[in-house]
Amino acid sequence: MFPVPIEKATKTNRVIYYSSVALVLLLWLIPLMIITLAAFKTADQLNAGGRGFVLPDPFTLTAFKRTLTNEPFMASILNSFMVVIPVTVISISLATMAGYALSKFRFRGMIIIFAIFVGGNFIPYQVLMIPVLRLTQDIGIWNTKYAIILFHGAFQAGFCVFFMRNFISQIPNELLESARVDGATEFEIFYKIVLPLVRPAMAALAVLIFSFVWNDFFWSLILSPISPSGMLAPAGLATIIKGRFYNEYNVMAVGSILVALPPVVLFFLLQKQFISGLTMGATKG
Protein backbone atom coordinates (compact mmCIF):
# COMPACT_ATOMS: atom_id res chain seq x y z
CA MET A 1 0.00 0.00 0.00
CA PHE A 2 1.39 3.36 -1.01
CA PRO A 3 0.90 6.50 1.01
CA VAL A 4 -1.70 8.74 -0.57
CA PRO A 5 -1.16 12.50 -0.33
CA ILE A 6 -3.26 13.89 2.48
CA GLU A 7 -5.00 16.32 0.11
CA LYS A 8 -6.67 13.38 -1.60
CA ALA A 9 -8.00 11.79 1.58
CA THR A 10 -11.64 12.03 2.61
CA LYS A 11 -12.72 15.12 4.46
CA THR A 12 -13.14 13.38 7.85
CA ASN A 13 -9.70 11.85 7.55
CA ARG A 14 -8.22 15.22 6.73
CA VAL A 15 -9.87 16.82 9.76
CA ILE A 16 -8.59 14.02 11.99
CA TYR A 17 -5.16 14.34 10.46
CA TYR A 18 -4.79 18.08 10.84
CA SER A 19 -6.23 18.22 14.33
CA SER A 20 -3.98 15.43 15.58
CA VAL A 21 -0.97 17.15 14.01
CA ALA A 22 -1.89 20.32 15.86
CA LEU A 23 -2.40 18.42 19.10
CA VAL A 24 0.91 16.57 18.92
CA LEU A 25 2.67 19.77 17.97
CA LEU A 26 1.19 21.54 20.97
CA LEU A 27 2.15 18.73 23.34
CA TRP A 28 5.61 18.73 21.86
CA LEU A 29 6.02 22.46 22.34
CA ILE A 30 4.71 22.69 25.92
CA PRO A 31 8.15 22.30 27.57
CA LEU A 32 9.63 24.81 25.14
CA MET A 33 6.90 27.30 25.92
CA ILE A 34 7.44 26.88 29.66
CA ILE A 35 11.17 27.39 29.25
CA THR A 36 10.65 30.45 27.10
CA LEU A 37 8.27 31.94 29.67
CA ALA A 38 10.75 31.19 32.46
CA ALA A 39 13.50 32.99 30.56
CA PHE A 40 11.64 36.29 30.97
CA LYS A 41 10.79 35.87 34.65
CA THR A 42 12.63 37.08 37.71
CA ALA A 43 14.28 34.57 40.03
CA ASP A 44 11.98 35.80 42.80
CA GLN A 45 8.88 34.99 40.79
CA LEU A 46 10.12 31.47 40.06
CA ASN A 47 11.12 30.90 43.68
CA ALA A 48 7.74 32.04 44.89
CA GLY A 49 6.09 29.31 42.83
CA GLY A 50 5.43 31.21 39.59
CA ARG A 51 6.37 28.31 37.34
CA GLY A 52 4.66 26.74 34.36
CA PHE A 53 2.08 28.67 32.38
CA VAL A 54 2.27 31.87 34.35
CA LEU A 55 3.05 35.05 32.51
CA PRO A 56 6.25 36.81 33.55
CA ASP A 57 5.47 39.41 36.18
CA PRO A 58 7.43 41.62 36.01
CA PHE A 59 8.72 40.97 32.51
CA THR A 60 12.49 41.18 32.66
CA LEU A 61 15.57 40.58 30.55
CA THR A 62 17.82 40.10 33.58
CA ALA A 63 18.27 36.42 32.87
CA PHE A 64 19.47 37.18 29.35
CA LYS A 65 21.84 39.79 30.67
CA ARG A 66 23.19 37.44 33.30
CA THR A 67 23.66 34.61 30.84
CA LEU A 68 25.28 36.71 28.15
CA THR A 69 27.67 38.28 30.65
CA ASN A 70 28.55 34.90 32.18
CA GLU A 71 32.00 34.64 30.67
CA PRO A 72 32.73 30.96 31.38
CA PHE A 73 29.39 29.96 29.89
CA MET A 74 29.83 32.07 26.77
CA ALA A 75 33.35 30.66 26.48
CA SER A 76 31.93 27.15 26.64
CA ILE A 77 29.66 27.94 23.70
CA LEU A 78 32.66 29.23 21.76
CA ASN A 79 34.56 26.08 22.73
CA SER A 80 31.72 24.03 21.33
CA PHE A 81 31.94 25.79 17.98
CA MET A 82 35.69 25.26 17.92
CA VAL A 83 35.11 21.54 18.36
CA VAL A 84 31.98 20.94 16.34
CA ILE A 85 33.02 22.77 13.17
CA PRO A 86 36.31 20.87 12.70
CA VAL A 87 34.55 17.59 13.49
CA THR A 88 31.90 18.27 10.88
CA VAL A 89 34.51 19.22 8.30
CA ILE A 90 36.79 16.28 9.06
CA SER A 91 34.18 13.55 9.14
CA ILE A 92 32.28 14.74 6.07
CA SER A 93 35.32 15.32 3.90
CA LEU A 94 36.83 11.98 4.85
CA ALA A 95 33.51 10.24 4.40
CA THR A 96 32.91 11.73 0.96
CA MET A 97 36.28 10.53 -0.26
CA ALA A 98 35.92 7.14 1.37
CA GLY A 99 32.36 6.79 0.14
CA TYR A 100 33.46 7.56 -3.39
CA ALA A 101 36.22 4.99 -3.29
CA LEU A 102 34.02 2.34 -1.73
CA SER A 103 31.20 2.75 -4.22
CA LYS A 104 32.97 3.38 -7.50
CA PHE A 105 36.19 1.36 -7.32
CA ARG A 106 36.71 -2.34 -6.88
CA PHE A 107 39.65 -3.31 -4.76
CA ARG A 108 40.72 -6.04 -2.42
CA GLY A 109 39.30 -5.74 1.09
CA MET A 110 36.61 -3.30 -0.01
CA ILE A 111 33.82 -5.19 1.73
CA ILE A 112 35.86 -5.52 4.90
CA ILE A 113 36.62 -1.82 5.02
CA PHE A 114 33.02 -0.92 4.43
CA ALA A 115 31.93 -3.44 7.06
CA ILE A 116 34.27 -1.86 9.57
CA PHE A 117 32.81 1.58 8.93
CA VAL A 118 29.28 0.28 9.24
CA GLY A 119 30.08 -2.01 12.16
CA GLY A 120 31.44 0.92 14.13
CA ASN A 121 27.93 2.27 14.34
CA PHE A 122 26.76 -0.80 16.20
CA ILE A 123 29.28 -0.61 19.00
CA PRO A 124 27.66 0.87 22.08
CA TYR A 125 29.91 3.85 22.63
CA GLN A 126 29.98 3.44 26.41
CA VAL A 127 32.14 0.37 25.80
CA LEU A 128 34.76 2.61 24.24
CA MET A 129 34.89 4.98 27.18
CA ILE A 130 37.95 3.60 28.93
CA PRO A 131 40.01 2.58 25.88
CA VAL A 132 39.49 5.97 24.27
CA LEU A 133 40.29 7.76 27.50
CA ARG A 134 43.53 5.79 27.86
CA LEU A 135 44.42 6.28 24.23
CA THR A 136 44.05 10.04 24.44
CA GLN A 137 46.03 10.08 27.67
CA ASP A 138 48.81 8.01 26.11
CA ILE A 139 49.20 10.28 23.14
CA GLY A 140 49.00 13.28 25.40
CA ILE A 141 45.95 15.02 24.03
CA TRP A 142 43.53 14.26 26.83
CA ASN A 143 42.11 17.39 28.37
CA THR A 144 42.51 19.31 25.11
CA LYS A 145 40.07 20.05 22.33
CA TYR A 146 42.08 17.82 19.98
CA ALA A 147 40.89 14.73 21.87
CA ILE A 148 37.24 15.48 21.18
CA ILE A 149 37.87 16.67 17.65
CA LEU A 150 39.84 13.57 16.69
CA PHE A 151 37.53 11.16 18.43
CA HIS A 152 34.30 12.55 17.04
CA GLY A 153 35.90 13.07 13.64
CA ALA A 154 36.83 9.40 13.53
CA PHE A 155 33.75 8.00 15.18
CA GLN A 156 31.19 9.99 13.20
CA ALA A 157 33.02 8.99 10.02
CA GLY A 158 31.49 5.50 10.26
CA PHE A 159 27.95 6.72 9.82
CA CYS A 160 29.03 9.36 7.29
CA VAL A 161 30.81 6.83 5.09
CA PHE A 162 27.77 4.57 5.12
CA PHE A 163 25.57 7.48 4.16
CA MET A 164 27.88 8.89 1.48
CA ARG A 165 28.66 5.52 -0.08
CA ASN A 166 25.00 4.76 -0.65
CA PHE A 167 24.47 8.20 -2.02
CA ILE A 168 27.45 8.18 -4.39
CA SER A 169 26.65 4.72 -5.70
CA GLN A 170 23.52 6.22 -7.25
CA ILE A 171 25.58 8.43 -9.52
CA PRO A 172 25.52 6.69 -12.90
CA ASN A 173 28.85 5.15 -13.84
CA GLU A 174 28.37 6.49 -17.38
CA LEU A 175 28.85 9.98 -16.04
CA LEU A 176 32.22 9.15 -14.58
CA GLU A 177 33.24 7.11 -17.62
CA SER A 178 32.45 9.90 -20.05
CA ALA A 179 34.51 12.27 -17.94
CA ARG A 180 37.34 9.77 -18.03
CA VAL A 181 37.03 9.49 -21.81
CA ASP A 182 37.23 13.27 -22.03
CA GLY A 183 40.58 13.06 -20.28
CA ALA A 184 39.72 14.09 -16.74
CA THR A 185 42.11 12.86 -14.05
CA GLU A 186 40.68 10.83 -11.16
CA PHE A 187 41.00 13.84 -8.88
CA GLU A 188 39.17 16.07 -11.37
CA ILE A 189 36.38 13.51 -11.61
CA PHE A 190 35.94 13.54 -7.88
CA TYR A 191 36.21 17.28 -7.58
CA LYS A 192 34.25 18.41 -10.63
CA ILE A 193 31.70 15.63 -11.13
CA VAL A 194 31.09 13.85 -7.86
CA LEU A 195 31.30 16.69 -5.37
CA PRO A 196 28.69 18.96 -6.99
CA LEU A 197 26.30 16.03 -7.24
CA VAL A 198 26.60 15.00 -3.60
CA ARG A 199 26.32 18.48 -2.18
CA PRO A 200 22.75 17.92 -0.90
CA ALA A 201 23.89 14.79 0.89
CA MET A 202 26.78 16.66 2.44
CA ALA A 203 24.47 19.38 3.65
CA ALA A 204 22.16 16.83 5.21
CA LEU A 205 25.08 15.13 6.88
CA ALA A 206 26.43 18.42 8.12
CA VAL A 207 23.18 19.17 9.90
CA LEU A 208 23.07 15.70 11.42
CA ILE A 209 26.68 15.59 12.54
CA PHE A 210 26.60 19.13 13.80
CA SER A 211 23.67 18.43 16.07
CA PHE A 212 24.98 15.01 17.17
CA VAL A 213 28.29 16.44 18.24
CA TRP A 214 26.88 19.70 19.53
CA ASN A 215 24.48 17.88 21.83
CA ASP A 216 26.99 15.29 22.93
CA PHE A 217 27.47 15.42 26.67
CA PHE A 218 29.08 12.04 27.27
CA TRP A 219 32.33 12.46 25.35
CA SER A 220 32.83 16.05 26.26
CA LEU A 221 32.57 14.94 29.86
CA ILE A 222 35.16 12.22 29.40
CA LEU A 223 37.63 13.66 26.97
CA SER A 224 37.53 17.31 27.73
CA PRO A 225 38.25 18.83 30.98
CA ILE A 226 35.34 19.96 33.00
CA SER A 227 37.75 22.61 34.07
CA PRO A 228 35.90 25.82 33.37
CA SER A 229 38.22 26.95 30.60
CA GLY A 230 37.83 23.92 28.35
CA MET A 231 34.21 22.98 28.80
CA LEU A 232 31.74 22.53 25.96
CA ALA A 233 28.29 24.07 25.93
CA PRO A 234 26.17 21.17 27.27
CA ALA A 235 28.61 20.66 30.13
CA GLY A 236 28.66 24.40 30.65
CA LEU A 237 24.92 24.42 30.96
CA ALA A 238 25.02 21.60 33.49
CA THR A 239 27.88 22.92 35.55
CA ILE A 240 28.50 26.64 35.14
CA ILE A 241 24.93 27.77 35.26
CA LYS A 242 23.72 25.18 37.72
CA GLY A 243 24.70 26.22 41.21
CA ARG A 244 25.91 24.13 44.08
CA PHE A 245 22.72 24.42 46.07
CA TYR A 246 20.61 26.95 44.30
CA ASN A 247 19.64 26.99 40.64
CA GLU A 248 18.67 30.18 38.91
CA TYR A 249 15.99 28.65 36.74
CA ASN A 250 15.50 31.79 34.67
CA VAL A 251 19.20 31.87 33.78
CA MET A 252 19.14 28.12 33.10
CA ALA A 253 16.19 28.64 30.78
CA VAL A 254 18.07 31.28 28.80
CA GLY A 255 21.14 29.05 28.73
CA SER A 256 19.09 26.13 27.41
CA ILE A 257 17.64 28.29 24.67
CA LEU A 258 21.09 29.55 23.68
CA VAL A 259 22.55 26.05 23.59
CA ALA A 260 19.63 24.71 21.57
CA LEU A 261 19.78 27.48 18.98
CA PRO A 262 22.83 26.69 16.78
CA PRO A 263 21.65 23.28 15.49
CA VAL A 264 18.20 24.74 14.87
CA VAL A 265 19.61 27.69 12.96
CA LEU A 266 21.81 25.39 10.90
CA PHE A 267 18.86 23.17 10.15
CA PHE A 268 16.81 26.03 8.80
CA LEU A 269 19.73 27.32 6.76
CA LEU A 270 20.25 23.94 5.12
CA GLN A 271 16.66 22.75 5.29
CA LYS A 272 16.15 22.36 1.54
CA GLN A 273 19.28 20.32 1.03
CA PHE A 274 18.60 18.39 4.22
CA ILE A 275 15.23 17.06 3.09
CA SER A 276 16.30 16.27 -0.47
CA GLY A 277 19.53 14.74 0.82
CA LEU A 278 17.66 12.43 3.18
CA THR A 279 15.12 11.23 0.64
CA MET A 280 17.62 10.82 -2.20
CA GLY A 281 19.91 8.78 -0.01
CA ALA A 282 17.05 6.60 1.05
CA THR A 283 15.87 5.33 -2.32
CA LYS A 284 18.66 2.83 -2.76
CA GLY A 285 20.35 1.18 0.16
Binding site: D44, N47, A48, G49, R51, F245, Y246, N247
Partner: peptide, 11 residues
Protein backbone atom coordinates in the same frame (compact mmCIF):
# COMPACT_ATOMS: atom_id res chain seq x y z
CA UNK B 1 13.02 20.03 45.50
CA UNK B 2 14.41 22.02 48.40
CA UNK B 3 14.34 25.09 46.19
CA UNK B 4 10.72 24.61 45.10
CA UNK B 5 9.75 24.24 48.75
CA UNK B 6 10.93 27.81 49.34
CA UNK B 7 7.77 29.00 47.61
CA UNK B 8 5.40 28.41 50.56
CA UNK B 9 7.88 30.15 52.85
CA UNK B 10 8.01 33.15 50.53
CA UNK B 11 4.22 33.18 50.04
Amino acid sequence: SWQEAQAPLIN
